[in-house]
Write a protein that binds this DNA or RNA. Structure first.
Lengths: 152, 152
DNA sequence: GACCAACGTTGGTTCGGCCAACATATCAGG
DNA sequence: CCTGATATGTTGGCCGAACCAACGTTGGTC
């Protein structure tokens, strides 16, 4: 819960380096997200997969991984955990026996919603010092960066 | 070197969530930094400590950690590596025998400079799609967020 | 002198991100 | 039809950054 503050004052070299600002703020963001989702016994990966399932419907594991930017191998582990809690159902795809079709269960939908609510609160504490306009600005800038480095 | 692209299109839920945008762009930033510094056989922690040393002069390990936002225990390990390359000298503080005084060597200064140059290039590829004004905007917004979550 | 705080150090943990390898299954070309 | 390339799920590992608990030593204070 501690702020892990950068004590006195970080070196100017760092404070003016965008990559450092990014990774530092991201670290704070991650901590807040972990705290929030941790209360629901979940992590970022769980939310991402559930969100993708709700938004685009059932999909294979590989497809899910591609959509969320999560490695195939990590998808396996997270789906195991989600399936163990019945938030997700994994069934062999009759049309392509290599694939598993992953489906969001009702409980999964409910859990996703709960996660979404806590994440909304997290965004608010994360962006607390910024006005609405500034939040939009930040979002736009980051989106452009991300799109660029993602191959559009 | 791969872009690890978020395949087709990440769920809108994610793409509009600032904490996700932050952690994703930060991941790209970290990758670029790791690539750049990796060529010099260094990591982010090494640069941070060297930069702090150059900027504020010799200091104890605890002090360095506080300045850089690096945990005491991690400082130990990184200083071991830096000292092994003679980029840093670690000597007991005669005034306080609990402390080690860490000093930047000439070689350390040179290496820091080299790191700084490659990091400058990294910033440029990281921020490629943004104009100078936009880069400043981003820097200001992130700085405000960081200051806020750092206890000012 | 007794206590508590700070320091350096060791040895963990977590989370996100990645890679290599393998068996199985699909698909396209010869 | 068969053969080879490709996709999928899965296992088991690795790394960097961030953290935490504990211990022995040293410093300052009451």
């Amino acid at each position: 819960m501690e702020s892990a503050a950068t004590g006195p004052q970080a070196p100017a070299r760092l404070r003016t380096t965008p990559s450092w600002l990014l990774t530092q703020t991201a670290a704070h963001a991650s901590r807040l997200v972990a705290e929030g989702l941790g209360a629901l016994d979940a992590r970022g990966y769980h939310y991402r997969l559930l969100a993708a399932l709700e938004e685009s419907g059932p999909a294979s594991q590989a497809e899910l991984g591609r959509r969320c930017g999560i490695d195939r191998s990590d998808v396996v582990a997270v789906l195991n955990e989600l399936a163990a809690k019945d938030l997700v159902r994994r069934s062999p795809d009759p049309a392509d026996r290599r694939r598993n079709v992953v489906t969001l269960t009702d409980a999964g939908g409910r859990e996703l919603r709960r996660m979404g609510e806590t994440l909304d609160r997290v965004q608010d504490t994360l962006l607390a010092p910024l006005s609405t306009a500034e939040r939009d600005q930040l979002t736009r800038l980051l989106t452009r960066l991300l799109d660029h480095h993602t191959g559009r």
